[in-house]
Design a protein around this nucleic acid. Structure first.
Length: 401
DNA sequence: TCTGGGGTCCTAGGACCC
DNA sequence: TCTGGGGTCCTAGGACCC
């Protein structure tokens, strides 16, 4: 979907069309600004001048989405808001409204599955579709069906999307970025050399900043240069699995199926504080946040019908270093108090002297709430974990939470 | 100018078991 | 009296993605 969050916002604030606008920021801060919006007839009647400006935003956070008008100024996703404000102070800023985006996410996915049932969910704004066997799916290399999908989504939601059609997921993903927004791009195997090889390695889904930097260290900048390397050379430098995979993707090969069903592995809640907090000095505040995260997470699990037995915490320190601790318990749970208790034990095993920026709680090893009891009986719920050195250390740590 | 929140998968060492 | 080999589970960290 094209600039998904921003595009959904423009559906209710059409008066902002064409203006530089970003979605992100600490919700509360932006909400305060929006609360000053005068009472109008509908949302569409709110004057543009009433919307908060990026330059007036003072707080932490990153941009989740920028309109194409904002991207003209060099603003992009994941950019810090303060930096974005320097690039385009007059840009408008709106808070993230995830419930609203989910609503539209469900709508556009339903449109797709009605046309092509083999759809793989890749998050709120992206999917893979296998339309090999959809009637008409092969016409004009897939362009006819891609157009139908675009048109149907626009009709049902008012939103545009970009579609890449290719023999596999790897190439389709790259193709989808060739003609944004509202574009269709068809890539055949024979286009590999002309259209894929000139691209930077970073364009491969799975090659991130670290791998790219390492590749560049070897003088490999494009996918073509990667393809020119011997498989064995790549394996020698990047390991057996990664090296072999890199060789495959450079040659446009990808056998992964479109997966229509999957079960969640973990669920989590985390929050970045408005200012760094200290475990001792800000103990009360931290404790309240901690409890709330556990309650939210428990509610998420219960609403979705899951229980879990690995409970963990995540800290991000002021210096951005991350620490995680987790503990697997005997029986599955989705109870806020149980989660809070185990997570509290995890917290005691992690250094708490330095300023904290973020706190998160996670539940993993999930099972469906209805089926977990059966499994528990079958396994006997045996406990075998003894007292680890970490536990001993924890016992000596002041009970901050 | 500091850098969100919610995920998945991989690696690697140690415990433990047969 | 010099120490196997294979397997699973648990834990911590890290890369990467949307």
């Amino acid at each position: 979907m094209d600039a998904f969050y921003a595009s959904v916002e423009l559906l209710r604030y059409p008066q902002l069309k064409g203006l530089p606008m970003v979605i992100g920021g600490g919700r509360r801060k932006v909400d305060e600004a929006l609360r000053n919006v005068p009472e109008g007839g509908t949302l569409a009647d709110i004057p543009v001048a009433a919307f908060p400006l990026l330059k007036d935003y003072a707080g932490r956070g990153v941009i989740t989405t920028a309109t194409y008008a904002a991207r003209q100024f060099g603003i992009g996703s994941a950019m810090g808001l303060m930096k974005a404000a320097k690039l385009c102070p007059q840009a408008l800023i709106l808070p993230v409204d995830f419930d609203e985006y989910r609503k539209y996410s469900r709508r556009f996915k339903q449109v797709i599955t009605e046309i092509a049932p083999l759809m793989e969910d890749r998050g709120v704004d992206e999917v893979y579709i296998d339309f090999t066997d959809v009637p008409g799916g092969q016409r004009e290399g897939g362009r006819v069906l891609a157009r139908l999908i675009q048109k149907s989504i626009l009709q049902a939601t008012g939103l545009t999307c970009s579609i890449g059609v290719a023999p596999n997921k790897l190439l389709a993903k790259m193709a989808s970025e060739f003609d944004k927004p509202n574009g269709i791009s068809i890539v055949f195997e024979r286009d590999l050399q002309a259209r894929i090889w000139p691209l930077p390695c970073r364009k491969v889904n799975g090659i991130g900043p670290k791998a790219d930097e390492k590749l560049q260290g070897h003088g490999i900048r494009t996918i073509g240069e990667l393809a020119a390397k011997e498989r064995d050379w790549l394996i020698a430098h990047f390991g057996k699995a990664t090296g072999a995979w890199m060789h495959e993707v450079a040659w446009g090969r990808d056998e992964r199926a479109v997966v229509t069903e999957s079960e969640p592995v973990s669920m989590s809640r985390e929050t970045t504080f408005e200012r760094d907090l200290h475990a001792v000095r800000d103990r009360a505040e931290l404790g309240a946040i901690f409890t709330r995260l556990c309650e939210q997470l428990a509610a998420d699990l219960q609403r979705k019908g899951y229980v879990g037995k690995t409970i963990g915490i995540k800290l991000r320190y002021g210096d951005f270093k991350i620490a995680t601790r987790d503990q697997t318990i005997e029986s599955f749970t989705a109870d806020p108090k149980a989660i809070r208790r185990i997570a509290g034990q995890c917290l005691k095993r992690v250094p708490l002297e330095r300023p904290l920026r973020l706190l998160g709680v996670r539940v993993g090893t999930l099972a469906r709430a209805g089926e977990a009891a059966t499994e528990l009986v079958a396994s006997g719920g045996t406990a075998r974990r003894g007292k680890s050195p970490a536990d001993e250390a924890a016992a000596q740590t002041a009970s901050l939470f």
